[in-house]
Amino acid sequence: MPPVVRIEHLTKHYFLESVTVRALCDVSLTVEQGEFVALMGPSGSGKSTLLNLLGCLDRPTDGTYILGDDDISHMDDDRLSEVRSRYLGFIFQSYNLLPQYTVVENIEVPLLYQGCRITEKTRQRCIQLAELVGLGERLDHRPMQLSGGQQQRVAIARALVNDPHVILADEPTGNLDSRTSEEIMQMLIRLNEAGKTIIMVTHENDIAAWAKRVIRMRDGQIETDDRNTEPRIVQDVSSAFVSALNSLLSEAIQ
């Protein structure tokens, strides 16, 4: 499998008034296509910092970052926006849906910034995605009217709509109870089975147990990087879901 994400000697320092915070020191990492990576580590170890850098929301102090075939390290703000819009999908701990939009409109948002027109066809795809994550009945609901788990599913659909190379999730189950977390994780696993690369930050071993690869960080450095020999698997691997998702997303690539 070809590498999707390649970082070399990545450093991130925050320069505060009196001190310099070394959030990341000389981190190198390669993630191949189709991997499911869990980032773990104590609070303040630099997981979010790394994820933000991978998400092109921030620029490293030093080092290189190659996403797909593009060198991200020296891109300007507009180009970074474009990269986020084309190649990346985000899932946040606090869902981060836009409160004034309905479910379908929320899923549509990444398309607004892709430079293509919103048509009946794209609208249909958003509706199908909503159905895929099990929200077919609630297309016109607003985030306030949904439970946390439902909101997170909207966020997953939104992260899929631009058919990203990599999905980045910062503690996607942090605000959810264990049952709902399970549901969300199953959904992520299915996405991964459909070929999506996922990098996920988590604190919980239970959650990390789903991932195929677990990276532990400490003080801004990678401490361990292990293959999970026996990742948890979804019991009822519904191939229907995978094929539906695949056909949906292959439609998107035009």
């Binding site: 929301l57 703000d77 507009d78 926006s81 474009e82 981060n96 849906l97 836009l98 948002v109 607004l112």
Partner: peptide
């Protein structure tokens, strides 16, 4: 502000 952050993360350019 949060809405702006979300939109930026989802690909909005400054001009948007």
């Amino acid at each position: 502000t949060r809405e702006i952050g979300i939109r930026r993360a989802l690909g909005a350019k400054r001009w948007d």
